[in-house]
Design a protein around this nucleic acid. Sequence first.
DNA 1: GTATTAATCTCGCTT
DNA 2: AAGCGAGGTTAATAC
Lengths: 216, 216
Amino acid sequence: MMDQIRVEQPWILYADCEVNYNGRATSNLERGNLLIIHKSDGTLLIQGGTLCTPRNYQPPQAIMHKIGNKLISKRKNETICIFIYEIIYYKELSDWSIKKIDIHKTEKDLRDYIVNNIEEILGFKPIELFTEFNTPVGSVDVLAIDRHNTYHIIEVKRGKISIVGCTQLERYSNYFIDIMKNVRDYLIAPEISTNALNYVKEMKQTYLEIDHVSDS
Amino acid sequence: MMDQIRVEQPWILYADCEVNYNGRATSNLERGNLLIIHKSDGTLLIQGGTLCTPRNYQPPQAIMHKIGNKLISKRKNETICIFIYEIIYYKELSDWSIKKIDIHKTEKDLRDYIVNNIEEILGFKPIELFTEFNTPVGSVDVLAIDRHNTYHIIEVKRGKISIVGCTQLERYSNYFIDIMKNVRDYLIAPEISTNALNYVKEMKQTYLEIDHVSDS
DNA sequence: GTATTAATCTCGCTT
DNA sequence: AAGCGAGGTTAATAC
């Protein structure tokens, strides 16, 4: 029954099976019909009949073995064991596209817009301007220094700001305060949660609402 | 050519196609052979020949339409349009298992272990003990109050603690300080990053190394 | 390798 | 519906 399965090939398999995983966590998936996807880079996906997220998976570089009625995928300290009761459908996929997707309107796009319009957004012309400025506590999205040597620290979010974004900014801010810099803190995003807005006010951060940039 | 595709059914489709997405972001995926998965809950996955993550997707509750050579999936303000050049394989999947997976050794398991062994971990017997204690700035994993009315705030991580975990704890800590409580801050995890460990020391947080609990 | 962050994050839970 | 956090997060990027 298992003869047709070639563990070194990309394929899809629809099978009555049961899956066990052991690694960072441990899991069991009860017997049933599941869609198993095997890619040429070692990726393994086990998809159930609902939800986006695979029931089980292995990221790239996993190695698959076939032992009797079992498919075993190993990767570092993570192992998936699929016990096959019945193969319903097996198909090898040829010439599977490996092209990457091209995504726009990301955080980087918004950051680029901010950098290109920094003067009107902040209301002054910085004497120095950095993006992805590295500190020991993470990298600052945009850092603008004015002629009074005040550090304007900008955290950018493409979507709604939650309280986590505020503390991220706070952490960068504290770093610059520790090294004796004067700072001003900004959050720039199209939206903010109510709790985050309270936090912003309390921490004297400045929230600027800027919507997604249209495609250029 | 498109006659066989039934948009209300769960199926897999291997096709030469090109995909455009518009919603929170915008994306284009160049023409090539791609695996398209359609589930009964509306989930749509477009898988390329590498990586775990789908090239494009729609979470549950998306609605699919067929217009000429195009498959269009809509969900709130998000639309995926698949232009089909050629159908290579099409297969409807029957009796697709919707069973959920059962995962162990999660953060909750570690938290339960901590609660059950709180006395030996903290070195005292709390007069009050909470899990998932809600505050306006998030919910505290474990909160133990001692007889001197000091609040022992515990942040639990199943994996390695990064600096983000430290600021999460700090946020809870500041909340209790603001409402005039005496606090002690703990991070419990099997591992911690070096930057996070520096932060822990600076913020006078206590890091306790506790490994995953074995299966019970 | 380690460390950090974005993500069309997804998903579940709680208010 | 909104907000928040875990996740076997994955994937990309910087060091």
